[in-house]
Nucleic acid binder design. Structure first.
Lengths: 303, 303
DNA sequence: ATCTTTGTATCAGAAAAATAATAGTTATGC
DNA sequence: GCATAACTATTATTTTTCTGATACAAAGAT
C-alpha cells in the first residue's frame, strides 16, 4: 500500500497554517477531512508528525524533516496545476533548444535578453539531442546530423566548412607552396611539426579532417587543449599555431586579420546544418523567430 | 476545483508504460480507475494528453510537456514515500550544518569524505541560520551569536580572538613601539597609511576592531577585497599588508612565520563559539561526532 | 475470413472518502 | 470559576471514487 499524494498537500497546509481548521478553509475541504489525511499520513509514516497543542499543531522533528523534504517538489507540482489548467491564459512560452556550445555563443547569445519567450539552451551529443527532441525535452535542435525518428523534421539552413586555420603570426610561407603544388605528403609532415590547438570534445574535427586529406590517423597530440572552439580562436588571434574548425565560427577573426584561412582540404569538407523540430510542435511561432535569428546571422556574416 | 495529485502519478505511469492496463498493474489499481484518472486530468487541463492509438497511448505535444514538467518533483515525492515509510530501515542520515565558510574550510573540509553520514553545509548570516535551525532546515549551526529561540540549545566549545595581523614582509618596526608605548592615536594614523585586506562580507571585523580600539569608524577603504578570510591569509603570506581576522584561522601561517600577529587590541576582543542544535534533535549521535571533530581540531591547533 | 490477443470504454454495484453535525478539550477573558 | 472562543476528534450520512463484469475495437496469427 502506498500513500496518497493528497496527504502531502494537506500536510504542508497544516504545517503552514498551524491548525486543521485553517487548513480546511485553505484547501476548500472539511476539517474532519484534514484530520483524516493527517492521521493516515502519520499511520503510514509510523510516527507523529505534529504535537497536538491546544491552539496549534506543533511539528515534531520528523514533521520538520518531512516538510523540508517535500516543500519544493510539491510547489513545483502545484505550479504545474496552474500552468496546465484550461483557464490559464497563454503565458510566456519556454523553449528548450539543443545545440553545440559554439553555435549558441556565435548566434544566439547576443539576442537572448530580447526574446519574447523564455529560452533554455542545452548542450550535449547529437544522437541524445535527437532522442530528447522526440521526447519533448527539447523543442528544437541545431545539428549537422539527421536522425531517423518518424516524428521529427529537419530543415537545412546553412552549411559549415571544416577548415584549417592558423594564427596570423604563423609562418606559412613554407607550407603554402606545398599545398598549392599538390605536395600533400610534405605538407602533412610540415604540419605535424607545428603548434596545434584542439578542444577536449572536438578532436573529431581534427581527426576527420586529417584522415580525409592525408589518409592516416593523426599520430601527434595537440599542444593546447582548451574548453571550446571560441577559445581556440581567441588563443590563435594575433598569435601562432594551427587548428581545424568550422569556418563560420572564425569569420570575424578572419576579416579582422587576426587569423588566416590556410586550407580547405583537397576536397572541401562541408556539413549541412539543420534545424530539427517535432512535426506537431506547439511552439511554431517561437521557433520561427529563432530560425530567423540564425538565418540573419548567417546572411550577414557569410557574404 | 483543483486537481488531484494522484492523477499525476497515474499520468506518469501511463506515459511510461504506454498502456492503461499496464499502468493499472503497476499502480495496483483497476484499469477503469486509470482511465478515469486520465479523463479527469484531461478534462481539467482542457486538452488531450494522449492520442489513443489501438495498441498504445501516444503522448501529444501537451502530454510531453506536462510529463517533463512533473517528472522530477514527482520522483522526489515518491522517494519521500520510501523514506518516511515506517518499515524503511534506518538509512544513512543526512545532516545539514550552517557555519561560515572559513570555519568549514578550517575544520571539516578534510573530514567530509570519511563521515558515516551525508553532510550538507550551508553558508549564510547567523540570524537566518538560527531560524533555519529552529525550522529543521539545519540540524546544527556553529556561531558566535546565541539566539533566543525556545527550542534551541547553545553549547560553547571554543573562543576566537579577533586580532590584527600582518604579512611577514611588512615593516612594523615603527608601529610596535607606538602600540607598546600606548601611543594609540599615532599607531592609528600609521595604520591608516598601510595596505589593508578585507572580505566583502567581513568588513564587520575591521569596523568593530577599529571602533573598539580607536573610538572612531575606520575612514579608509581596504586596498584589496578578496572572497574570504582564507584568501586574505594566503595573500598576506610572505607578503606585505594588514588585516583583522579571527586568530584560529591563521595559526598555521603564524607558526610557519608567513604572517605575524601584530596586536590583540588594548583589551582583547574575544568571541565564544557555540554549537547550536535543537533540543529534541533526532541526529544526536551524528552531531556528537561532528562536535568531536571540531573539538579535536581546536585542541590540536590552539595549544 | 475467422480466431485470438491485447487493449480501451462503459456501467451498475461496492468501497472509500468527504461531509455536516456535534461532542470533547483547553486556553482566555471577565 | 464560569462562559466563551478556538480548536480537534467522532459519528452517521452523503458523495465520490473505484472496481468487476462486460462490451467493443483493432492488430496479428492461423
Amino acid at each position: 500500500m502506498q500513500w496518497n499524494l493528497e496527504w502531502l498537500r494537506t500536510f504542508r497546509a497544516i504545517y503552514e497554517t498551524g491548525t486543521l481548521s485553517a487548513t480546511a478553509k485553505e484547501l476548500f475541504i472539511s476539517q474532519p477531512g484534514v484530520s483524516l489525511h493527517l492521521n493516515s499520513l502519520e499511520a503510514y509514516a509510523g510516527y507523529k508528525l505534529f504535537d497536538r497543542s491546544p491552539r496549534k499543531m506543533v511539528p515534531t522533528e520528523k514533521g520538520k524533516i518531512l516538510y523540508n523534504f517535500i516543500l519544493e517538489p510539491l510547489q513545483k507540482l502545484e505550479s504545474a496545476e496552474q500552468h496546465f489548467h484550461r483557464r490559464s491564459q497563454p503565458e510566456r512560452a519556454t523553449i528548450s533548444v539543443g545545440m553545440c556550445f559554439e553555435t549558441f555563443q556565435y548566434t544566439l547569445e547576443e539576442h537572448v535578453a530580447s526574446l519574447p519567450f523564455n529560452l533554455i539552451i542545452k548542450f550535449g551529443l547529437y544522437p541524445q539531442m535527437q532522442v530528447d527532441l522526440d521526447n519533448g525535452l527539447l523543442d528544437m535542435i541545431v545539428t549537422p546530423q539527421k536522425g531517423n525518428q518518424q516524428n521529427l523534421v529537419y530543415e537545412p539552413f546553412s552549411k559549415e566548412r571544416i577548415v584549417l586555420i592558423a594564427g596570423s603570426k604563423t609562418d606559412i610561407s613554407e607550407l603554402m607552396p606545398l599545398l598549392n603544388g599538390g605536395d600533400i605528403l610534405d605538407a602533412r609532415d610540415f604540419l605535424k611539426q607545428q603548434l596545434w590547438y584542439s578542444t577536449a570534445g572536438d578532436m573529431e574535427h581534427l581527426k576527420n579532417f586529417w584522415s580525409k586529406n592525408f589518409n592516416e590517423h593523426p599520430d601527434f597530440s595537440p599542444n593546447y587543449i582548451v574548453p571550446n572552439i571560441s577559445s581556440i580562436i581567441r588563443c590563435l588571434s594575433d598569435n601562432e599555431g594551427f587548428s581545424i574548425v568550422p569556418d563560420f565560427l572564425c569569420h570575424e577573426a578572419l576579416d579582422a586579420g587576426k587569423i588566416k584561412l590556410v586550407w580547405e582540404g583537397s576536397k572541401p569538407w562541408e556539413n549541412t546544418l539543420y534545424f530539427g523540430t517535432r512535426k506537431n510542435t506547439m511552439y511554431h511561432n517561437e521557433l520561427e523567430q529563432l530560425k530567423k535569428l540564425f538565418e540573419e546571422k548567417w546572411e550577414r556574416e557569410m557574404v
